[in-house]
Design a protein around this nucleic acid. Structure first.
Lengths: 251, 251
DNA sequence: CGCGATTTTGATCAATGTCAAAGGTGGTGG
DNA sequence: CCACCACCTTTGACATTGATCAAAATCGCG
């Protein structure tokens, strides 16, 4: 149903070869301690695009490291409206929330084929107790996630639709390029529909479409078939009020 | 300049008598271990309403437990627009961000006279190393802060102005009542201007004013001179789509 | 080739912002 | 104790943004 990346999702042979080892909680372990993680983890899993990783409102029994692919976190209201909270790229640690045993506060969907590394949820607190470095790293991760949420909040709360869109696309461009570098630096694979963008920004997809057109007509970018092509990053950053100094703390 | 609570801010005589001991990182210590905190902390401080606790863009050297009073966290864009990220009540732990040494990603202002307990910033990581329980609790705190930011994001992104306003006021009513209970359960002291509310919700204060009027005229609430009086919580919750189950994980 | 999902466009409408001015309110200093 | 002042609230007229509705065009996939 949804789009997929050109590349199939990759699962590393072991934790030593894991490409995201340094960006998630596993960072807590030195190379020679990685057996702790390998003993702890439940296993790896490959999920096709469109899969629900976990559902809002349901308790779950796992935690996830995103190894490859793109996931979206969202909340759905009784009114039927959807708010996309975050687009998640490899290296993220998913599913940790204040009440580990409570119903999930948000849902997670795979936008592409995805590879995850699965941890058991119930024994994670004891892992943190046995290995305080894990807790320390999780603090950093959560602090950064919070900062990203604040950034997103600021984008929606203070900017008009055109600026809002420019800001989001630039940000995604920077983040995706980091994990999925491409031949042409300006072009990046972005597996989103205009509907996703609209629900992330609190706009309608019709309006997003119209704003995309103005940006295209101004020669700033092109976004078609899941390909985002940034033509004039500088002018876009001005329009979207993107501050590179702030951004650097977020990724 | 700004409003103040009727009561002056209170500083506890020692950590044992600290009213927020259980809601912040200090929770990591048993009663008889509290001397660790007392040795670690820099001291307490009382700040008059209107004070800037720390400024966006500037590095700082401290961390704060909010003991008493109300603080607001915000970001200000070059365009001059302000986004209020969160209204902070006693028990919060303030100033921790991904890059502890970097410039603050947001600013913090005192809405009322405030009492804070000050920690040194540079030695906090070593405190976490020596006392892993601190890190564990900070994980919970940050996870909850993130969930709150997601909630706020959802409010701004998915609801029309009237519902947005109803949602925020109900939420604040619940939170403030918890720390500052009043004789009449429906009335609560809320030291905000309509400008604050507008900047929290991504609306103009003029529009907030008009929506407040409709809520008042419908007999749902009254908000005047920093007093919020909820007259019909049930109907308000319906309008603001407030889900009590979700809320419970957030406070 | 045909189908479902997505994108694109135009016409119209509703929600929210902007501007401007008048009325309140509490705090301060004479 | 009064009067003034700064800040906040309230209101109305009008402008603009973004939503809604509907239909056609396009795309990816089987």
């Amino acid at each position: 149903m949804p789009r997929r990346f050109k590349y199939p999702p990759a699962v590393p042979p072991d934790c030593q070869g894991c490409p995201i080892r340094k960006s998630t909680v596993c960072r807590a372990f030195k190379l020679e301690e990685l057996n702790v993680v390998e003993d702890f983890k439940t296993g790896d899993r490959i999920l096709p695009a469109g899969t629900t990783l976990y559902q809002e409102g349901e308790p779950i029994t796992e935690l996830y490291n995103l190894l490859d692919g793109v996931v979206v976190l969202n909340r759905i209201l009784t009114s039927g409206r959807r708010q996309i909270l975050e687009f998640v790229l490899p290296g993220a640690f998913l599913g940790y929330q204040p009440d580990l045993k409570g119903p999930m506060l948000h849902g997670a969907q795979c936008l592409t084929d995805v590879a995850v590394c699965v941890f058991p949820r119930h024994s994670f607190p004891s892992l943190m107790r046995r290995h305080p470095e894990v807790a320390a790293h999780l603090v950093s991760i959560k602090a950064r996630d919070e900062a990203r949420a604040h950034n997103h909040l600021t984008n929606i709360g203070t900017r008009a639709s055109r600026a809002r869109l420019a800001h989001l696309l630039l940000e995604l461009h920077i983040r995706v390029r980091r994990w999925y570098p491409t031949a042409d630096d300006g072009i990046v694979e972005l597996p989103l529909t205009q509907d996703h963008i609209a629900d992330a920004l609190g706009l309608t997809s019709v309006h997003v479409n119209k704003m995309l057109r103005t940006l295209r007509e101004d020669g700033l970018l092109r976004f078609k078939n899941g390909q985002l092509n940034i033509l004039d990053a500088k002018r876009l950053a001005a329009i979207g009020e993107l501050d590179p100094d702030t951004v650097s703390q977020l990724y």
